[in-house]
């Protein structure tokens, strides 16, 4: 029972990592940059949802939509103001900018909402506990796992079928050739940030529904873990981010349960190092596709 319990918790935590990792991996794949401010967009999303629920009297679904809308606008603005002018710049300059953006978001949150942790309100997401046999599972766990599955299917269909999704795959493979097709690369990158940031808002709400303490640094650690998950799965690969995220969550929970609570995070990174030694491109990274 404890094993199953841990497994379900691991899948749930891993699903949150996976949803965040999607933002890292899509932006990396298409804009070829590491957006280290992504974790902090999660935190902003969580605060917006918190305010909408606590102060503005929004129903939960509308609060999530508001968080997504604000994060989408934030992501597109960050890209347009901070990253776009650096499109031709050295990647190190872009990385430093992203780290600066991360602190800017954290400090702005500190100014607006203060340092005191807020307790994220209860909603339909974490409102009930389900009993399956001897197992008791929080509704947040189930909803998180389901949300991850729905997002994965939707994104896969989006990139495979839609015009914008195909444009993203082209830009990711060869930016110059994509331009020669008539694809507006800047617009494609904007849309990528929009999608990644909207997903970050969802991740923020799910994260705070399972771990209801909200402060300006709330996004940092999950952000770093999700980035790790994206690398683990093969950065640039959408299924890789899913696999990496879920595995990372499961490894973390099992590591904490069976090996050491204190060393849980260290175990996660140890596994990452071993995987990267064996397969430097990550689990699903840059594999050569076979004939269909």
């Amino acid at each position: 029972m404890i094993f199953l319990d841990n497994l379900i918790n691991g899948l749930s935590l891993g699903s949150i990592y996976a949803i965040i990792a999607l933002g890292y991996t899509m932006v990396y794949g298409i804009a070829k940059m590491l957006n280290f401010a992504h974790g902090d967009v999660i935190m902003v999303g969580a605060y917006i949802a918190f305010c909408a629920l606590q102060y503005w009297g929004f129903p939960p679904v509308l609060a999530i939509v508001a968080a997504m809308a604000v994060c989408t606008a934030l992501g597109v603005t960050i890209e347009g103001l901070a990253y776009r002018p650096l499109r031709q710049a050295a990647s190190l300059a872009v990385l430093i900018t992203a780290i600066g953006m991360s602190y800017l978001l954290q400090n702005t949150a500190l100014m607006i909402w203060g340092a005191n942790p807020k307790s994220f309100p209860r909603t339909f997401i974490n409102g009930t506990t389900l009993r399956i046999g001897q197992l008791s599972v929080s509704s947040a766990t189930i909803i998180t796992i389901l949300a991850n599955i729905v997002i994965m299917i939707a994104l896969t269909l989006f990139t495979a079928k839609t015009k914008m999704g195909k444009a993203m795959r082209c830009v990711s493979e060869d930016r110059g050739a994509a331009e020669l097709m008539g694809i507006n690369v800047n617009r494609t990158i904007s849309v990528t940030f929009a999608i990644g940031s909207a997903l970050a808002a969802i991740a923020g709400v799910l994260l705070c529904s399972s771990y209801p303490i909200l402060q300006p640094t709330t996004g940092s650690m999950p952000g770093i873990k999700a980035f790790t998950a994206a690398v683990f799965g093969g950065i640039g690969s959408i299924p890789g981010a899913m696999l990496g995220g879920v595995l990372l969550g499961v490894i973390e929970i099992f590591g904490k349960a069976y090996i050491s609570t204190e060393l849980g995070d260290a175990i996660v990174f140890a596994v990452l190092i071993v995987v990267l030694l064996v397969k430097p491109s990550g689990l699903l990274g840059k594999q050569i596709r076979e004939k269909v």
Binding site: K166, A167, R169, C170, E173, D174, G176, A177, A178, L180, M181, I183, R289, V292
Partner: peptide, 15 residues
């Protein structure tokens, strides 16, 4: 500079 990971048909459609 064809799109290596796309199908022949998808490449043409992108054109």
């Amino acid at each position: 500079r064809i799109f290596q990971q796309m199908t022949v048909r998808e490449n043409l459609e992108m054109g």
